[in-house]
Design a protein around this nucleic acid. Sequence first.
DNA 1: TAGTTTATCTTGTATATACAAGTTTGATGT
DNA 2: ACATCAAACTTGTATATACAAGATAAACTA
Lengths: 238, 238
Amino acid sequence: MSKKEVIHLYKKVIEDLKLQIEKGDFKKGDLLPSENDLCKLYDTTRVTIRQALSALANMGYITRKHGKGSIVSEPKAGLGILSLSGVTAGIGTQKLTTSILQKPVKQAWPDNFFFPLDEEEAKAGCIFLSRLRHIDNMPVLYEETYITNIELPRFSSRNLENRSLFNILKEHYKIEVKEGEQKIWARHADKAISNLLQIKTTHPVVHMQRKMQTNVDGLRIYSSLYCNTEENFLRDSF
Amino acid sequence: MSKKEVIHLYKKVIEDLKLQIEKGDFKKGDLLPSENDLCKLYDTTRVTIRQALSALANMGYITRKHGKGSIVSEPKAGLGILSLSGVTAGIGTQKLTTSILQKPVKQAWPDNFFFPLDEEEAKAGCIFLSRLRHIDNMPVLYEETYITNIELPRFSSRNLENRSLFNILKEHYKIEVKEGEQKIWARHADKAISNLLQIKTTHPVVHMQRKMQTNVDGLRIYSSLYCNTEENFLRDSF
DNA sequence: TAGTTTATCTTGTATATACAAGTTTGATGT
DNA sequence: ACATCAAACTTGTATATACAAGATAAACTA
């Protein structure tokens, strides 16, 4: 009764190459195997290989040069919060830990929610969770996440510690973030935030509000986050 | 002796559809003609049409739905490039003014530039300019821009006041920003910034450093900006 | 009528092939 | 030794075709 999901060849090529770049088998400036080499490797044709390579180029892993080849791009560093490419940051995963302050719970949207909601969305309610991220055991980023309430089997009980919410949504529910918008402020930490991030109330923090569309119709992800950028910074690529 | 550039079919499809979306022939939510219809229209095959459509999807003009069609997206402000918005909904362009503190000048890159430069780039030097943006005559955002020094005829003498640098680069030099990355901090304003933005040195400001790739090989645009987000916020779509 | 199936749309994945055009390298000829 | 040219790479554009799979509406059945 196993799912027996059809794994598409071009997706396998993407995953393989992505992994090898992230592992460091291919470093910045290296040339990937040529399209024809990859064709032989995967026993397929150039159209399929090119589909994978152009996706990788779009995700920012490589740049392509006519007559030359596929050149591995600079690895992205920083707290890659926003990267749509799914690059889990250049900050070593071992240094970045996440603790859940509020496990996912179904609830109504807060009053005066920070982005306007359409009717269906407002009626459906949301799944709320909050997390605190640490780097080297120091709290750095506090994030509140609101997901439109649709049926996500076993979602509330999933272990979100030290794992990317986006990866879980992708792997288990095939939900992928497609586009979004964000608003950015610099603020003094208020009492709650200064407690959470263990800083003084005069300390400047980045405040961000984000709205993200997904590939699932009607399902949006909102988040509000506060970040102490004294020792680290927020980064994103577009 | 004209250039007689070969215009590729898939590029023509992209341009045609893009134009029709921008003109409003296709509005948000509309379905584009199906792939097969477009095949007949352009007397070509699906592979070529799909190449165009997937490019348009990547550019954010459409989203594609399996079994449904190509759906025209909400028009977006720019390509994920930072735009400034007011708390009170969108500020009209009339309220936003720009003054040039430093007209474009050719110079060497600063020492310890905030992004690593490759050899060619470092050798070429840069064009530097700085601008101060006001909302309702209050200074809100200070931005320093560095462009790789390539020949841009008459660029230094162009009037950049109240006009988008990106629009000028696009219209006059066909330079378009393709992708980029940005780093974000919250900081207390230092003396220079507090003077420029007319705020106290304890005031929190958003500091951003951005690196942008263009469609011209070897031409990159860097910027470092400081923003007072008390009355306004920075906004960004991706 | 209401629910189900079927046909027919749509896009998604894939094979096989051809030639154009940019880049590099090595052979050739002076 | 050096410049030139040709061959052998690379990616870019394109045609033609096949079947899978999601979405939708018409036809069918209870």
